[in-house]
Design a protein around this nucleic acid. Structure first.
Lengths: 143, 143
DNA sequence: ACTTGCCCTGGTGTGCACTTCATGGTTTAT
DNA sequence: ATAAACCATGAAGTGCACACCAGGGCAAGT
């Protein structure tokens, strides 16, 4: 499969495909006699994984680390597996952080309704506006 | 509270604090007679929110939008509230995508164990290695 | 033979989110 | 009164992850 088609199917730019290969996010792609890239199924898998992890916030650098391990010869299985687990752990941490932020936003929305209600009832002044709009559990010592 | 202390407590750089204020991610901070910033509780709340949303992947631009709305006079309550809800929706979408990636990673780890087991049992050759290491449900038509 | 439409490489450009730098002003300690 | 440790601004620099471009090669159709 040629670059253009892969780019379409996986919704990435041709430039990104070349970039990923160049820096080592994905292993080298096989070429035809003209030096044109001919993507195999396995390459698509790599690209899909790269796309997913990038989307999840993984750095290109981390992905190079994994791809490099996957390609190196010898028994690197353990190391490679560890990297996968590590990435999973990072993902889980991201989940946790995202949830905190979600809670924060929900709290903001809640107190905002409150804020609005009081405002409409004429209880809101410049004086108390600040107090009604506080951060939830912002606790410096809890860090 | 001065810049340095705020930076310490909220774990951001002083430069970032200035940057956020300059571009409008947070409202202007009150100054003392020398023009030195004197952060109030409310400012800390803003910064904490900014940090959280940035961490969750929100762009600085989106945050400027919200902060600007929050400061503008007149009845912008509806618009402001809408922005909050919008950000929450974006967060939820992010959650969904993250979960997909999590599943992918877990699948990779699973099949990796499989891969390893077969390898150790001497069933793995260069021939079948690729087939054992396929992407889960990578389905071009499902897009 | 020549236009069209792919492909290649190497180098430069871009946008975002800061970060660093040069220069200088103000309180606090010695 | 001089150094240390804060603070300020505006401008320029940095790193990441691509995106764009110039110059050129191959292959098929008209």
């Amino acid at each position: 499969m040629n670059s253009k088609k892969v780019a379409e199917i996986l919704d990435v730019s041709v430039d990104t495909l070349r970039y990923y290969e160049r820096v080592g996010v994905i292993p080298p792609v096989t070429r035809d006699k003209n030096g044109y890239r001919n993507y195999q199924n396995n390459d698509l898998n790599w690209i899909f994984l790269a796309k997913s992890l990038r989307n999840a916030g993984m750095s290109v650098e981390s992905m190079i680390e994994f791809a490099t391990l996957a390609q190196s010869s010898g028994d690197v299985s353990a190391a490679q597996k560890e990297v996968l687990h590590e990435q999973l752990a990072q993902l889980d941490q991201k989940f946790a952080e995202l949830e905190k932020t979600r809670n924060l936003l929900e709290y903001k929305i809640e107190t905002y309704d409150d804020h609005l209600a009081k405002f409409k009832a004429g209880e809101m002044t410049a004086d108390n506006a600040d107090k009604l709009w506080q951060m939830p559990k912002f606790n410096p010592s809890a860090k």
